[in-house]
Simulated scan of single mutants.
Amino acid sequence: MDDAAEQVSFGYEQVSREEKTRRVGEVFRSVAARYDLMNDLMSGGLHRLWKDQFVRRVKPRPGEAILDMAGGTGDIAFRMAARGAQVTVADINPAMLEVGVKRAAERKVEGLVWAEENAERLSFPDRMFDAYTIAFGIRNVTDIPAALREAHRVLKRGGRFFCLEFSTTEWPGFGKVYDAYSHHVVPRIGELVASDADSYRYLIESIRRFPDMETFRSMIAEAGFAQARVEPVLGGVVAIHSGWKI
């Protein structure tokens, strides 16, 4: 395979797969301590409501095993653990996991398992989990189809996959306003608040390069999931994707 075929997007740049993995790691090491603030800036604080809605769709039940991938800071895991689920929090970035462990201690959330994992090559055995969740993380994975196949592999039969991700709004006129805000305002606030405009700029660009809702729904189905569905939120600014392993 030639070098051109190996190129992947890092925001609006085309880079090698190895370069993307390295640079995404640098972004999240940079923003880990301010991750909640970053999400507040990018969503106007709405991410908290979106995560609540996401967990309601997952319907975690007492005692079931759930893998929360790219969940380092614990936002989704805390919500699911409160409903009695046994949650494994996995993230490729140790800095994000460190933030999550600290937050769990501060909130006195016990029983979570923390694991440094690459979504494309999970160390867990086949058919281990009842559910797999990933919130605002899939677009940063270098090989998304590989990550989806791994999600399918580690789920039990009857297991469910849920993904919360930024998408493309379908509301007429709103998309232009949101684009202007995200491209021009968010990096500027990132520079003022976190002295890091570049990381925030990448995160906005990564949203624009992510597949649209129907394309990503098809990718979930191609990974082997049945009943692949998408639920737009706020006209598609974000979307909840789901599928079942049968």
Rank of each mutant, 00 (worst) to 15 (best):
I92M: 12
E231T: 12
M69V: 15
K176P: 00
R107G: 00
N93Y: 04
D40M: 03
R56I: 10
V109N: 04
R157V: 08
G175M: 06
M42C: 11
P145L: 04
K108F: 02
K108Q: 14
L203G: 05
G175F: 07
F54E: 11
E64I: 06
D75Q: 07
R188N: 13
E110L: 13
R56A: 15
A147G: 08
K245R: 06
A223S: 10
A77F: 05
V58A: 09
R29H: 11
E6L: 14
V99W: 03
S30G: 14
D126F: 01
D68E: 02
S182D: 05
D68F: 01
V109Y: 04
S242T: 10
P62G: 10
Y132S: 01
S218I: 08
K108S: 13
P62F: 10
F129H: 06
F28A: 06
G236Y: 04
Q14K: 15
L148P: 04
E117P: 01
G158R: 00
A5S: 15
R61G: 07
G63W: 03
P232N: 09
G72N: 03
D40P: 10
F162I: 05
A119Y: 05
E165V: 11
V31E: 02
M96T: 08
F129T: 02
P62T: 12
R48A: 13
G137S: 02
A147E: 04
I134V: 14
D3H: 14
F78D: 01
D36N: 10
W50A: 04
R188P: 14
G235I: 04
V89M: 01
G100K: 06
G175R: 12
P211Q: 09
G243E: 08
A131C: 07
I144S: 00
G44P: 00
D143Q: 11
T168D: 14
L112K: 03
A95N: 05
R209D: 09
E191N: 13
R157A: 11
S30L: 13
F54K: 12
S195P: 11
L67T: 07
R107F: 03
G243Y: 03
P60Y: 09
F174W: 12
E26S: 11
L46H: 02
R121A: 15
E6S: 15
